Simulated assay, not measured.
Amino acid sequence: MPWEVRQIILGIHIFLAINWIGGVMFIGWGVFPSVRNMAFAQQRKFFLALIQWSHRFLTAAGTGVILTGIVLGTIGGPIKNLDDIWHTSYGNIWLTALLIALITLLWGVFIGYRQSIKVFSDVALWETADSGDKKPLSNALRITILLESVEVSGFIALIICMVLL
């Protein structure tokens, strides 16, 4: 693969990674805390719309990161056969990063997203909090935050792998 093409793919890879990781972390650490000052009914509607809208873009970005990472490691990189994966440190780290990225993306799509939709779609949970009993909502949000933190752990592990490559 020509060097210029590899650099373009690397640029796309980095851009998509920034959007995937940055998007998830911005929602969790930027938007979520700031919206908590809104009325419960507004919070629920806002988060439900945000999660539904951003899900497809974050999933596409994560998928793009994985696909461009495969191209960068194989066609544009040193992995030319299975022995290169098993018998080189680059191949070992590349495979580790690929597995972490796949697990992180699948976790986000099938665990984190579904949990978020479940909590933000439960009108009764939010109405109960609005009438004064905030404990059930707090517990549901705590579980959601815990499940979503698995993605953040995956992102940290991916960044460590990229530094090692």
Rank of each mutant, 00 (worst) to 15 (best):
G73M: 00
I143K: 08
W86A: 12
L72M: 13
T63Q: 06
F15Q: 05
T59K: 08
Y90D: 01
T59L: 11
W29A: 08
S54G: 03
S153K: 04
V150L: 09
L125H: 06
I85R: 02
H13T: 02
W20N: 01
R36M: 12
S121F: 01
I70G: 08
G132D: 07
G30W: 03
S131F: 01
D83T: 14
I21S: 00
P136Q: 02
L105V: 08
P2C: 11
V163K: 11
L50H: 10
L165G: 13
I18Y: 00
E148I: 03
G11C: 04
S54D: 04
P2I: 03
V65H: 01
W29C: 09
D84M: 08
G62H: 03
G30S: 06
I111N: 10
I70F: 15
L106E: 15
L98K: 10
L16G: 00
S34P: 04
F40S: 01
F110T: 08
S138W: 04
I160D: 14
M1F: 15
D133P: 11
V65R: 00
S153G: 14
F15R: 01
K134Y: 02
W3T: 09
I159W: 15
S121D: 08
F15A: 15
I103A: 06
I145V: 10
D84C: 09
S121H: 11
G73R: 00
G11T: 09
V31D: 03
S121A: 05
D133E: 05
I103P: 02
A39E: 15
G154N: 07
S34V: 15
M38H: 13
M38V: 07
I143L: 12
H87A: 07
F47I: 01
K135S: 10
G30M: 05
D83W: 02
W3V: 04
I111S: 11
R56G: 05
S149G: 05
F40D: 14
I70T: 06
L147W: 01
I51Y: 05
M38N: 04
I12H: 12
D133H: 10
M38E: 13
F40E: 14
D83S: 14
G69F: 03
L98N: 07
V150C: 04
V150A: 08
I21F: 03
L58G: 07
T96G: 07
P33S: 13
W94P: 06
L82R: 00
L106D: 14
Q7T: 13
L125R: 02
F15M: 10
H87P: 00
N37Y: 12
G112V: 05
S149Y: 09
D133G: 03
G77C: 06
G28W: 03
D130A: 11
V109S: 13
T59S: 07
W3E: 12
T104N: 13
L48W: 13
Y113S: 04
I79K: 06
G154K: 00
W107L: 01
N81Q: 11
R44L: 03
A17M: 12
E4H: 11
G62E: 12
L146S: 05
A41G: 00
A39S: 07
G73Y: 02
K45I: 01
